[in-house]
Computed example of a mutant assay.
Amino acid sequence: MWVEKRATGTYKFVEQYKSPLTGKRKRVSVTMDKNTAHTRKEAQAALEAKIQHQLKHVDDGNLKHGITLRELATDWLKDYKPMVKYHTYDNSASRVKVMLKHIDGDILVEKIKPLLIEDFLNGMIYKDDYKNSSVMKFKGTLGNMLRYAYKHNYIKANPIEQVNVQYRTDEANDDTSKKFLDDNELHEVLRFMYHRSPHYGRFCEFLYLTGMRYGEAASLRRQDISRRDDGKVVASINGTLVNDHKQMSPKTGNSRRDVTLNDRAVLLLNKESVDHPAKSEFIFESRQGHPLGNTILNYWLRQAKRKFDIDKVVSLHTFRHTHISKLAELGVPLYLIQHRVGHKDATTTKDIYLHVTKKAEQRLDSKLNFL
């Protein structure tokens, strides 16, 4: 290591190393304010860390030791971010934060065994009360991280392949009827949300009337609403809400669409416009001028679930499922429902449609003897 004094009065500490890929010498450097015994020691450690970071990405066929779970997470997220939409990345990054709270981030990746992963995932189900579907997402994210580790020779084999999660059996055959609300439940929940705030109530009712996803409705701006030549009012779905900003790309290609609004939905938009000045970016906003947050809305929906003892899933997404169930009940063909809600081929939409139409057939069968 040598030191170069810079014109700014700072000191540049430099070290060389030989690249295994090219055989050539490369340099790494770090700048310090002073040149003392203490700063030289700090610089030496920083330079060594930089060299090791460069060398660990060199694939020489040998296992690379000393990589921690926290380092793996940082490397994988950096590699993963440009490959996916921000919302997908953000969800993965959030799951990584949760993992690092439950699993020591300083554990060496090469020391991670299937049992450690099983304990973490099973604990999420039976200690932290996570749903099976949520734990599956955590397992998927961890599996992607460990596949990255295997690809870069941090581990000899991927332990996720030997993990056996003990999912709750009572969720194995999820009851489709618990995914949407009946008329009485819907009325109670909406009345509760209107009582909390007219903004909350209008937003939740708008989700039910349109079948939009939270991010689609929350990111609607005035210019996204238009009246067609036939007099119908439509909302153009062209983006979603990410970190309080509109990302001009919906969840999937099929999500980009125009949604026809009925008279009640138009009325709700007009009432929101009255409450917010024209300079507001979004139609649905809080009193502070921010988009309505899904965290606080889902919190109050959980309170409504408890208050009315509703034995179903009650969240913002429940209004979307309830919209699908109502369209099925009205006899709207499945392909039109899928187009309206922006689904090309969604299992949940099909399940709800078949559940509702099957119930209608059973009601018809019970009345045939009265002909």
Rank of each mutant, 00 (worst) to 15 (best):
W2F: 14
A7C: 00
F13A: 07
Q16F: 14
L21P: 01
V28W: 08
N35Q: 12
A37N: 13
R40G: 03
K41I: 02
E42M: 14
A46V: 07
L47G: 09
K50T: 08
Q54P: 09
D60G: 09
L63P: 00
R70D: 07
E71N: 09
A93K: 13
K101E: 14
I103L: 13
D106I: 02
I112R: 00
P114A: 08
L115W: 04
L115G: 01
I117G: 09
N122H: 12
S133H: 08
S133M: 05
L146A: 01
Y154D: 09
A157Q: 15
I160C: 15
V163C: 09
T169Q: 12
N173L: 07
T176N: 14
S177K: 13
L181H: 03
D183I: 10
R191T: 15
F192T: 05
H195T: 08
R196K: 15
P198F: 08
C204R: 01
Y214C: 00
E216A: 03
A217F: 06
A218T: 04
S219N: 01
R227A: 10
D230I: 02
A235R: 06
Q247S: 14
D263K: 15
N270Q: 13
N270M: 13
P277H: 15
S280A: 13
F284N: 13
S286N: 08
G289P: 07
T295N: 02
T295R: 06
L297W: 00
L301M: 10
R302Y: 04
Q303A: 12
K307Y: 07
T322L: 01
K326T: 10
L327P: 01
L330D: 13
G331N: 04
R340H: 12
V356P: 09
Q362N: 13
